[in-house]
Every structure is written in C-alpha cells, then in structure tokens.
C-alpha cells in the first residue's frame, strides 16, 4: 500500500481569530483530492472541534491529517492539562469553557460529542498535567 498523504498544522493556543484555519485548509485539500463531499464535511467538522478544543483548553498543539486509500485519520496532540473525566467530557452540554469563550459562541459542550458523532472511531489518550492525544478515523 502506498504512503498516506499527510498534512500537519501547528495550532496556536488562545488565538480565536485564526481558529479553524487548519480545518478550512484540510477541507480545501481534501476537495482537491476529490473525496466525496460528505466525507469531507465529516472530517472537517471533527477536526474543527478538535482544533477549537486545543485553542481553548490546551494552549495549542499539533494537528495531523493522514489520507489513506480507504480512510482519513486525524491525530490531535497537545501538551495541555489533560481531561480529568472523559465520560463527563463526552456528555453533550458539559463544558468547562470560561464565559469570555462562551460569548464568542463556543463552549456549548458539543466538541467531543461532535467529534465522536462525525467519525467512525475515536480514541482519547489523556494524562493530567501532560496532555491529550485524540485519534479519529473516517472510513470511506
């Protein structure tokens, strides 16, 4: 099998003006590759949610998107505070985002649930004080 096509982005923490840029670029690239629109939509939504989470909670991180012949893999790696209770964080509506973030329209508590909803598999590795690595897969 040939090597996957790889896109890598550094996500800046706390920068809400440019938040989402990596996801928009991924969407553009996937469109150029010619993937089906619904696959592109799922990948870009899941990635945007992850990107915003890294901007809000983790002080930024690295996002990688790997395009294989039969799937897209999204890997989000940050050195943030980690997630204390994954079960709680996965609940729709649960949010630890501060008020100033909510006033921008974020912090609905839908980030992780949306990431799960739009992907075929999602794996969270997290360690308090060390960081979080989330791997998501969208199959074609």
């Amino acid at each position: 099998m040939s090597e996957p096509l790889k896109f890598r982005f550094d996500v800046q923490g706390g920068n809400f003006t440019s938040a989402g840029q990596a996801s928009v670029l991924v969407k553009k690239n996937l469109r150029q590759i010619g993937l089906p629109p619904e696959i592109i939509r799922r990948v870009s939504i899941a990635m945007y949610e992850g990107e915003i989470n890294m901007v809000i909670h983790a002080g930024g991180g690295v996002a990688e998107v790997l395009v294989f012949e039969d799937k897209v893999e999204i890997v989000l790696d940050d050195k943030g505070p980690g997630i204390p209770n994954i079960e709680l964080a996965m609940k729709e509506g649960f949010s630890t985002a501060p008020d100033n973030i909510r006033s921008l329209g974020f912090g609905a508590g839908m980030g992780l649930p949306n990431m799960k909803r739009y992907t075929d598999s999602m794996n969270i590795e997290t360690e308090l004080g060390k960081g979080t690595k989330i791997t998501m897969v969208v199959n074609f």
Partner: peptide, 15 residues
Amino acid sequence: IMSNANIVAVASLAD
C-alpha cells in the same frame, strides 16, 4: 446573531 470571525469557518466547514 453571532458576528465574529469564527462564523465564517463554521459556515464553510458545515457547508
């Protein structure tokens, strides 16, 4: 009624 820059990314990604 939201009007900050992030609505553009959301509209673009949600198509």
